[in-house]
Structures are given as structure tokens and as C-alpha cells.
């Protein structure tokens, strides 16, 4: 018997009828799970091409009777999707630069450079992990107002550099790099800045890629905080969808679904293409997803 051939169950177990039935049931449950994941996405798409009367009938049917593709052109003209998508990407880019430069340099210094009171500085960063963010949500808002960064992108970009969890991930990654690389660079006369950007950064691309997934998914998902921090023309896609599509009073249901589909499909396609890398990256990040 080959080891690769078995998991918890061995081929021998599967010969017993009771085990077979349970295994079959288990496969059905997984199939049901897969369908329940795909169903809402499919239903959004089909509802987006139905006539509005058809979306509102009870009981709802899955496939549309008529295919109204012009829903999409109506939806496209309803809000300026490219503008809000651009804002989201802009927020993501700024947050990522902050993560690479500010957190990257700091964790490199904490991990690879020697200086007095380094432990204390590390504590200064890590202690913030123990305070739940919800407890200082409101003071954060007042603070941003007092610093006059509210309603600009800086109100999101600057605080993006204050993430102790990412700092921790980066530092533990740098800890694992071979110190001799940096020694030899130093002997060759490279400055510490070059050591970071030309040696540490390229070697740490996997962890930065993982962080990019995290940073992207938070820029992509966060809708609530930007409503307070940004002015209306700087809203990211999520916020715009929440306020102008989901909370809209007078918007036909089929157009609403067409809009939701347009927002949903591109990231799903990107995910399906890159899922191997993305899932591997998530494992590198340990637990947060």
C-alpha cells in the first residue's frame, strides 16, 4: 500500500459499506457547499439581465426569460465606476508605498541593525497590537480632523503606516534572512539604504506580495471608514457601491444587480487566474486572511 494513496481513510476503509455511505454523504455536503458559494454569484448575474418585473416575481426563477443586455449600459451610466475604481487603486498604491517604505525600513532596522534601546522601540510598536481598534475609532477620527488630513487621501495613507501586525510579519521574515549577505554588502561599501532596497527588498518579495494581498483586500473592502475620512469625489469603489447602489431608494433591482455583477466579476476572474499564487501567499502570512 502506497502512502500517497491514503488520507485519514485507507482504500481498505472504503470497502466497508457504512464508510462508503458516510464518504458519499460527505462528498454531497462539499458539493452543496460549492454550489452555495457559486449560486449567489450566478444569481446576481442572471438577475442583472432580467427585466425588472421578472426580478420582482415570486417565487423567483433562476434563469432569465429575456436577456436584457441594455441593463448594463444603464448601469454603466448610473454611477462613474471607473472614477471610483481609480480611487480604490490610488488608495491601495499609497497604502502599499507606506507599507514598503515606512514599515519595511523600520522592520529592517529592528531586525538587522544594531542600536541601543532597540528592544524598547520594538515594544513601542508591538504594544499597539493589544489595544482593540474599535476602542479608539472615534478619537482617531477627531485626531485626523485636528491634523487637517481629513477629506484628502493622506487621511488613509498616513495611518496605513501604523500597522503593527504587518511590522511583525516583516520583521520575522527579515530575521530569517542570511546575515552574511548584508555583511558582505557592507564590506563592499554599500550604504544601509542600498542594503535595504537592493538586497533585503528583492529577497523579501514573497512577504511583500503577501502584504500586498492584505493591503489590497482592505482597500478593496473597507467602505465605512472612507465615508468619514474622504470627501465624496475621493470615495473608493466599495463606499460608492454601498452609498449609491445598495442604499439607493429609487433604483430598479435589475440595474442594481447589473452593477453588483460588474463590480464582482473582474476580481473573481483575477482570483481564478492567480489563485495558486494568492493562496500560497496567504499561507505565508500565517493566519490573517
Amino acid at each position: 500500500m502506497k502512502n500517497a494513496e491514503r488520507g485519514i481513510l485507507s482504500p481498505y476503509d472504503l470497502r466497508k459499506p457504512l464508510n462508503r455511505i458516510v464518504y458519499l454523504l460527505m462528498c454531497l455536503v462539499i458539493l452543496a457547499m460549492v454550489l452555495s458559494m457559486v449560486y449567489p454569484i450566478a444569481v446576481a448575474f442572471f438577475n442583472g439581465v432580467k427585466a425588472n418585473v421578472e426580478v420582482n416575481t415570486f417565487p423567483p426563477h433562476f434563469l432569465p426569460e429575456s436577456w436584457n443586455w441594455d441593463n448594463y449600459s444603464k448601469a454603466w451610466h448610473y454611477i462613474d465606476l471607473p472614477k471610483y475604481l481609480r480611487n480604490t487603486l490610488f488608495i491601495f498604491a499609497g497604502n502599499m508605498v507606506m507599507t514598503v517604505v515606512v514599515l519595511g525600513l523600520a522592520s529592517y532596522s529592528l531586525s538587522r541593525l544594531e542600536w541601543p534601546y532597540r528592544k524598547a522601540a520594538y515594544g513601542f510598536f508591538m504594544a499597539t497590537l493589544f489595544v482593540p481598534p474599535a476602542t479608539y475609532l472615534v478619537p482617531s477620527f477627531i485626531n485626523l480632523k485636528e491634523l487637517h488630513v481629513i477629506s484628502t487621501f493622506w487621511g488613509l495613507w498616513l495611518p496605513a503606516g501604523a500597522n503593527a501586525f504587518y511590522l511583525l510579519l516583516l520583521k520575522s521574515f527579515f530575521d530569517g534572512l542570511n546575515p552574511e549577505l548584508f555583511e558582505s554588502a557592507r564590506i563592499d561599501g554599500a550604504s544601509e539604504l542600498r542594503g535595504f532596497f537592493q538586497i533585503a527588498f528583492p529577497l523579501s518579495l514573497p512577504i511583500f506580495a503577501t502584504l500586498a494581498i492584505f493591503v489590497f483586500s482592505s482597500a478593496w473592502n473597507d467602505w465605512f471608514w472612507p465615508t468619514f475620512v474622504l470627501s465624496q469625489d475621493r470615495y473608493p469603489l466599495s463606499t460608492a457601491i454601498k452609498l449609491f447602489v445598495i442604499d439607493a431608494r429609487r433604483l430598479d433591482l435589475n440595474i442594481r444587480f447589473a452593477l453588483l455583477t460588474m463590480v464582482m466579476v473582474p476580481p473573481i476572474l483575477i482570483f481564478l487566474v492567480f489563485q495558486r499564487f494568492i493562496i500560497r501567499g496567504l499561507h505565508l502570512g500565517g493566519v490573517k486572511g
Binding site: 507606506m98 517604505v101 515606512v102 514599515l103 525600513l105 523600520a106 529592517y108 532596522s109 529592528l110 541593525l113 522601540a121 513601542f124 510598536f125 499597539t128 479608539y136 482617531s140 485626531n143 491634523l147 498616513l158 495611518p159 503606516g161 501604523a162 503593527a164 511590522l167 544601509e192 535595504f196
Partner: peptide, 14 residues
Amino acid sequence: FVLPAALIFLLFTW
């Protein structure tokens, strides 16, 4: 290298 992060943590978290 630590200074920018320290300032940002000070301003936006502490």
C-alpha cells in the same frame, strides 16, 4: 530607518 514609523505610530495610534 525607524524614525518615520515611530512618528507615524505616535501620531496615528498612540
